[in-house]
């Protein structure tokens, strides 16, 4: 996104105060994760955690290993080494189905929805509500859909139309509503706004705030540093597969985060990781 690097002039610190409780066991704790693709260490000894109701932003250049790291969490890739703990318990995630069983859902950039059917049908695809006659109970599904969507995106009204007629932001909210109906407790959003316009991006930002209220933990990968500062409680920066450092968003400035992304330089407000530049 174009706003990525041209915000160096902006010295503003995050305005909001994060009230995330980080004393208990984290929802997700990934420790010393590594994976290599034919000699390339895509992710190298990366550790990252996430508490409930928290948004952790993953930042880094293209190729830094962000997507690969969270794909290990979502079960799309198998790690070479390292451990994943879900709510303090060691989890074995070997495929996407395992991840879903742990309440981990991924919202894809491509917004994987079935275009020809409406929002309710998408929300319930694969676990339709049936009538006692064994037929689809569209009324009940629409009613549920209205409930969930009412929480996430109160302006949404287009329940009768196939989702291909929806805007990117509306599709995004359908995809997220679907994950929530699946009882997602951890959401992975890999560049959720990359395909969206400014207004829709704002809509997704609202969505994320709603999800936080519902105690859902979110890994957010985004190139838009303004969004990141607006939405996240913590930032984790990766470079060359390694974690440069992590910090509570209010403890660092945008410039410092850009320094982490570009140079790998860890500022005083952040906890350095293995990838931090040695002084």
């Amino acid at each position: 996104m174009s706003t990525t690097m041209d915000s160096i002039a902006d010295h503003g610190r995050a305005h909001h105060h994060s009230d995330v409780d980080r004393t208990g066991t984290p929802l997700i704790d990934m420790r010393d994760i590594s994976i290599a693709f034919g000699g390339i260490h895509a992710v190298d000894q990366a550790s990252i955690d996430l508490y409930k109701g928290e948004v952790v932003a993953l930042l880094g250049h293209n190729g830094a290993g962000k997507s690969t790291l969270i794909k290990i969490l979502s079960g799309a890739y198998k790690r070479d080494s390292g451990e994943i703990f879900v709510r303090g318990e060691k989890a074995s995630i070997g495929n996407p189905r395992d991840a879903k069983a742990y309440g981990i859902e991924t919202i894809y950039q491509t917004l994987a929805l079935a275009d020809n059917v409406d929002a309710a049908a998408n929300l319930f695809l694969g676990r339709e509500i049936m009538t006692s006659w064994g037929t689809l109970d569209d009324g009940a599904m629409e009613a549920e859909a209205r409930k969930v969507m009412g929480r996430l995106n109160p302006n949404f009204r287009r329940f009768k139309e196939p989702v291909k007629a929806l805007s990117g932001g509306q599709r995004q909210s359908v995809a997220i509503a679907r994950a929530i109906l699946f009882n997602a407790k951890i959401l992975i959003m890999d560049e959720p706004t990359a395909a969206l316009g400014p207004q829709e991006t704002a809509q997704v930002a609202d969505l994320i705030k709603e999800l936080k209220k519902e105690d859902i933990g979110i890994f957010l990968i985004s190139h838009d540093i303004h969004d990141v500062f607006d939405l996240s409680d913590r930032v984790v920066v990766m470079k060359n597969g390694q974690v440069v450092g992590s910090a509570r968003t209010e403890d660092v400035t945008k410039d410092e985060v850009l320094g982490m992304i570009i140079l790998g330089k860890c500022p005083p407000g952040a906890t350095p990781g293995p990838g931090a530049m040695k002084e």
Partner: peptide, 29 residues
């Protein structure tokens, strides 16, 4: 039938029967 029709990635029945939902993940699967 309608759902698969709207999501071509999912339309390959051999491996991916249930992934009108998450083609990405299941493709990796």
């Amino acid at each position: 039938v309608f759902a698969i029709g709207g999501n071509p990635e999912a339309a390959e029945p051999r491996r991916h029967q249930h992934q009108a939902r998450h083609p990405d993940g299941l493709r990796a699967d």
